[in-house]
Amino acid sequence: MPRPADIAVALFTVAACAVAATFVDAAIGVSDATPRLAERAALVERLGLTDLSLFTEARYTRHLSQADAHAPFQDHPFAIEHFPSGSLVTPPRHQGGH
């Protein structure tokens, strides 16, 4: 009968291998996604887009990097404001150019 210690070590090894497998899985996933990513990047380049369309509820959050210096409802450039995505993303800090 195998000893509990050996079983435990074996289990931990398996779990560690599974963790290693996530890296492999991730690498496969990334290489699968590469054409998709490239396509998106190409679209961005062709259209000259600047931002992700993750945050579309307010007119200044779709293009975060293009927001006004004083966008509406935004009391302070760093204020977490009313829209949920606004709490997720602050307006860009570097608007002055340099």
Binding site: T22, L54, F55, T56, P84
Partner: peptide, 15 residues
Amino acid sequence: GWAVMYPEFQLTPFV
């Protein structure tokens, strides 16, 4: 959030 349009996208597994 309140976004009416939310893109459907599969997150690429960058780890």
